[in-house]
Design a binder for these strands. Structure first.
Lengths: 226, 226
DNA sequence: TCCAGTTTATGATATATGTCATATATTTAC
DNA sequence: GTAAATATATGACATATATCATAAACTGGA
């Protein structure tokens, strides 16, 4: 199996720094795996044995914190998920990863990655900068939530899936109200109530998981003013 | 000026991967600067022109978010602050850095760092792993705050300065109540009220900035159960 | 030393958010 | 296809948190 995929982001990101021989070495050991929706393919605490790249799909990063509390860390698309957050820092994953939609993951030999970092400076630089951008984005989203009210938090989730994932006014939420609660730190009931209130105020239409944004500016205004 | 400091953490972290010649190149261009307490030496939006390491002291990372809200991102000691969060990801700092106590900062030529990454694989690996650990820790602290009540949030700040910075039961808080509010996302009054309540409940003694922990287990229990 | 600004503190009150109870709708397992 | 589990929804109520007002304590500079 090689790396001939047409629209591989990791190729665009990393491979411009890899020459022919290295590319063969890197891709020769690649395994592609289809992950069914709602399947956890990286478990918190597991030993890190490979380097994974999301080729296609949508995933969530989640964890159980030191006090036993379940929380969602972030949502990711191929543009922003490669399993590098922990690879060089810890021996084990400090988070789990679950597919929200059917996803395709490319699995690489971790030793080859480590070897590439040591022998290919351009690759190391690209990896550091990709990793930095990804973790900056996650941290920034997390910080955004801390200072917002329940309205701002729920609005930010709806706007996130609209602006970063689906790009259309109407879309099916890929997560439950409970998961929105785990991401925002709110209770489930509060999440449901806020969604209902947004509906009553004419900001969105709701049919179960289906959301249709009616007043995007209104949502943005709520997000911005808490 | 060279890198002969006795207890340099960056030396311990990075320099084990650098040989004599590289060390000279790296340290030859080093500038050491003393930052007075409460001075901002990195400003959000500034162009990144150098690589900075906190040799001595205590700093806070802070930012103004997209909606104009001021918040504190994290606190750092020499053990965990090197200005690598943004260096390879962005052209400009996405956060400011202010000294909370008189601090010493070592300033390196950023091009030499970038050159080292490209030519010294061991250095690149150490840098990636140091950076990963630092950003994992910051993210983890930020996520911890999201799901906690005002009691848990304030307890976590007090326990942080006790367990990670001063190690003694009594210490002077290096930040104001307002800064605790900016870190936790609470209002100033709520922070003050919670501290007063902790005092009334015999968990701590308070004399202005001075905190003395009386019932550490009680604080931990509050932190854990929200 | 005094003034002005900031910080800490507390009360009164309004609002935001969580908890518990209950009901319906939806999904899953067999 | 049915039972059980889970997800969504809403009301009533309790608790958590913010806001506004005020005052005392502290800080830095003229």
């Amino acid at each position: 199996m090689n790396c001939s995929c047409e629209n591989c982001h990791i190729q665009a990101i990393f491979f411009k720094s890899i020459n022919g021989d290295e590319l063969d070495e890197f891709c020769g050991a690649r395994v592609e795996k289809i992950i069914p929706a709602r399947t956890t393919f990286i478990k918190q605490g597991d030993k890190i044995r490979s380097f994974k790249y999301l080729k296609e799909g949508l995933i969530k990063l989640h964890r159980v914190d030191s006090t036993g509390n379940k929380q969602i860390i972030s949502f990711g698309t191929p543009m922003d998920f490669v399993s590098i957050h922990n690879i060089f820092a810890e021996e084990r994953y400090s988070y789990s990863v679950t597919a929200l939609e059917t996803s395709t993951v490319c699995i690489f030999n971790i030793d080859i990655i480590k070897h590439l970092i040591k022998t290919n400076g351009k690759f190391a630089e690209n990896l550091i900068s990709t990793k930095s951008r990804a973790s900056n984005r996650i941290l920034s989203n997390s910080l955004d939530l801390i200072s917002k009210s329940m309205y701002g938090k729920v609005a930010s989730v709806i706007l996130f899936f609209h602006e970063k994932i689906y790009f259309t006014m109407g879309f099916d939420l890929p997560i439950s109200r409970k998961e929105i609660a785990e991401y925002t730190g709110l209770s489930i009931e509060t999440v449901i109530r806020v969604i209902s209130e947004f509906r009553r105020d004419g900001l969105i239409k709701v049919y179960g998981k289906r959301i249709e944004i009616i007043d995007k500016d209104g949502l943005i205004s709520i997000y911005e003013h808490s």
